[in-house]
Amino acid sequence: MKKTFFLFSTFIVISLTTKAQTDPTIKTSPKVNAERTLETLQRRLSLTDKQKTGLYLILLEQNNKIDSLKNIQAPRVIIKEQVKSSYQKIAGLLTPDQLKEYDNWMTEIRSKASH
């Protein structure tokens, strides 16, 4: 569970900073981050329409909350709790095979981020 939580945390950080790395003067909105993440998940997981809708709402809510928490300089532990909560919601929407692929994708992201 700790590994999965860490992987999901890494995913969120990467998804929130992807655009910022392209142009550091532009801050990407939580909505844009949620849409981009959903596009990637659709390609990798072959989501149903119901899953796409649910994941989009979870990602958008999470991105908005994390953005707000960062704006008030909340402690990392609070941000991690938000990420953990979102992961549990996402895991509830995915099939076991999709969740395994999702976790594999998170491992890839973590690996790329560490290099």
Rank of each mutant, 00 (worst) to 15 (best):
G54S: 07
Q82G: 01
A20N: 00
E81Q: 00
I14D: 06
E81W: 00
D67S: 09
K2Y: 12
V83W: 03
H115V: 15
I12G: 02
F8C: 04
L55T: 01
L99F: 10
L94R: 02
L45N: 09
T18V: 04
Q62S: 14
S85T: 14
A34V: 02
Q51K: 05
K80Q: 06
D49I: 13
T95F: 07
Q98M: 12
N33F: 01
E101M: 11
E39D: 11
V83T: 09
R44A: 10
L55A: 01
S46A: 09
T17S: 12
H115I: 14
L69Y: 11
F8T: 04
L57V: 06
F6R: 10
L45G: 07
P96V: 06
P75A: 15
M106H: 07
A113W: 14
L41W: 05
S86P: 00
L45I: 07
T10N: 11
R44T: 12
L47Q: 02
T25P: 00
P24M: 06
L45M: 13
E35P: 03
T17E: 12
E81H: 00
E35Q: 14
N104Y: 15
T22R: 10
T107F: 10
P24N: 05
L41F: 05
V32R: 08
G92N: 15
Q51E: 15
P75W: 09
K31R: 07
D103E: 10
K65H: 05
T107Q: 07
Q62P: 06
L69M: 15
R76N: 11
N33H: 03
L55G: 01
K84G: 01
D23W: 05
S68A: 12
N71W: 07
E61D: 11
L94V: 03
T4Y: 09
I66Q: 08
R110S: 13
T95N: 02
